[in-house]
């Protein structure tokens, strides 16, 4: 299996691939957004502006399907960032992967890459989808988890706390498990989909020429999966926020 190029600095592990890919994702999204709003026009929007407005409206619809749009307006930016960030993350690993084969110990910034210390012939994966890493998707999911609970406590404290003991107090453990299951499911769903896609790509590439049409087909499908997973992550985030913060009159 391919390994991550991790170096240790001051007791902290730095996964250079993950950090680099996160950075690239941030830059790509930022450049895309910046290009889209470069020549903002009310009456004659450009192609990229139109696309961006379409995304905004898409997220708006998504938010309004989960909660009252008046209440959910402040989450539109969050939904947009989630959508763009996860989508770009998902498709970054599709066009190619950069893998180096290290023989013996290799160092970077004067620090040895950890995997090469234990493995004589380590395959280091430098370019991949950042979301093909469980720790990164878990970070995103944890952030959502915190957000859900904080917003629930802030905007809807009484009903939010009450829902833990509904319909009876005996359901308290079940409700806590449900609450924890949300981010876990978010993280694992996103990671597993993208990671599996990349594994299958790597496997197909091993079949060399015969695998090429399948590689192309799988890349196309992965594009779809990447968009779908970005949508699902954003949608579920909004649904969870809606559940926690909006009290519906029964």
């Amino acid at each position: 299996m391919h390994e991550s190029p991790i170096i240790v600095l001051g007791g902290l592990r730095f996964d250079l691939s993950a950090i680099g890919m996160l950075l690239i994702t941030v830059i790509v999204v930022m450049v895309l957004a910046k290009l889209a709003v470069r020549n903002l026009s009310v009456e004659n929007p450009g192609k990229l502006q139109n696309f961006m407005e379409w995304v905004v409206e898409f997220v708006e619809n998504l938010v309004s399907s989960a909660m009252d749009l008046k209440h959910g307006r402040k989450y539109i930016s969050l939904g947009l960032t989630l959508m763009l960030f996860i989508f770009v993350s998902n498709i970054l690993g599709l066009p190619f992967a950069v893998i180096t084969e290290a023989h013996g110990v290799q160092s970077i910034f004067g620090q040895p890459i950890q995997a090469t210390l234990t493995n004589e012939h380590a395959h280091l994966l430098w370019w991949k989808s950042p979301t093909a890493d469980l720790s990164i998707t878990a970070g995103l999911a944890f952030m959502v988890f915190v957000l859900i609970n904080v917003m629930g406590l802030k905007d809807n404290r009484k009903h939010y706390l009450k829902h833990y003991v509904e319909p009876f107090w005996i359901f308290l453990p079940l409700n806590i498990v449900e609450n924890i299951a949300k981010p876990v499911a978010l993280a694992i769903r996103l990671f597993a989909n993208i990671f599996a896609g990349e594994v299958i790509l790597a496997t197909l590439i091993k079949a060399s020429v015969f695998g090429l049409p399948f590689v192309a087909a799988w890349q196309g499908f992965s594009l779809f999966v990447g968009a779908l997973q970005a949508f699902i992550f954003t949608m579920l985030t909004m649904v969870y926020i809606g559940q926690a913060t909006v009290h519906e009159e029964h």
Partner: peptide
Amino acid sequence: FVWENFVWAIVAFGILYFLL
């Protein structure tokens, strides 16, 4: 599971959210 990545993801997302 590299918990540092976990933190980096949140930091990267936070920065992106702020900039966007």
